[in-house]
Amino acid sequence: MTDAPLATWTPRRLPGDAPLIGRHVRVEPLVDTRHFADLEAGFRGQDQLWDYLAYGPFDGAESFHRFAEATYLGADPKFHAIIPADTGKAAGVAALMRLDPANGVAEIGHICLSPGLQKTRASTEAFALLYGRVFDELGYRRLEWKCNSGNAPSRRAAERYGFSYEGLFRQHMVVKGRNRDTAWFSITDTEWPGVKAGFERWLADENFNGEGHQIRSLEACREG
């Protein structure tokens, strides 16, 4: 809401290092190297995972470990390992980034999920937990999702997770020697309760049949 009064607003905290634990997944801030071997194994040979990221693919475990140690352990972006409960092994990463506690704004990005993690209850619950950290735990006002406009899977994921499309930033970046037009999405704190309820309905056991397939889509669950 333009020019809405915020007389009681105070700056928020930065995300901490406590893990987020769900029924199907553990989301753990990366503070050391102990998950790097599992991540490298999950990403190995999957060069397509890096198509729209500014780095990768890597030519071996040593190369990946050097990259991960230089990239995954900083404060912003704050990377999290995504660890499915059924394996106990890190199978993907996502970062809370461009953290702006004064204005209560954060972005989720640097998302890289191994094929075995993609399109699972664990991955969806991981994002629900991260969004809950931003809105419920930290009290932020806005969460952003940005991606290459040509990255159709990322755009579909943003919409599936309840983000609203806000527009296209033309010639926004140069990535791997190519132009990137950036598609921009967001969820606000006033939208979060409905988005959260959709996650809860989708993740409920009664939304899955005996073979583990969803009965209602996340979009349908969000509609109520």
Rank of each mutant, 00 (worst) to 15 (best):
M1T: 13
A7L: 14
A7T: 14
W9H: 09
W9G: 10
R12E: 07
R13Q: 14
P15G: 05
P19G: 01
L20D: 01
V27G: 00
E28W: 01
P29M: 07
L30V: 15
R34P: 01
D38T: 12
D38L: 05
E40M: 03
R44D: 14
G56S: 08
G56A: 03
P57T: 09
F58I: 10
E62F: 03
F64Q: 00
F64D: 03
H65C: 04
F67V: 02
F67D: 03
A68T: 00
A70E: 15
A70W: 02
T71C: 02
G74T: 14
G74A: 14
D76L: 06
P77Y: 11
A81H: 01
I83V: 12
D86S: 13
K89M: 12
A91C: 07
V93F: 04
L96F: 10
L96V: 15
M97G: 06
M97D: 05
L99M: 15
L99R: 07
A102Y: 09
A106E: 03
E107K: 02
I111R: 02
I111K: 04
S114P: 05
P115W: 13
P115H: 12
K119W: 07
T120I: 03
T120N: 00
R121L: 07
A122D: 02
S123V: 15
G132V: 12
G132C: 09
V134E: 01
V134F: 12
R141P: 04
W145S: 00
K146I: 11
C147S: 13
N148G: 09
N151K: 07
N151L: 10
A152D: 15
P153T: 10
E159I: 13
S164G: 11
Y165D: 08
R170M: 09
Q171E: 14
Q171W: 06
V175M: 12
R180G: 08
R180I: 11
A183T: 12
F185N: 07
D189F: 02
P193M: 09
V195E: 06
G198T: 06
G198P: 08
F199D: 01
L203G: 03
L203Y: 03
N209Q: 07
G210H: 11
H213K: 14
S217H: 06
C221I: 06
E223T: 14
G224D: 13
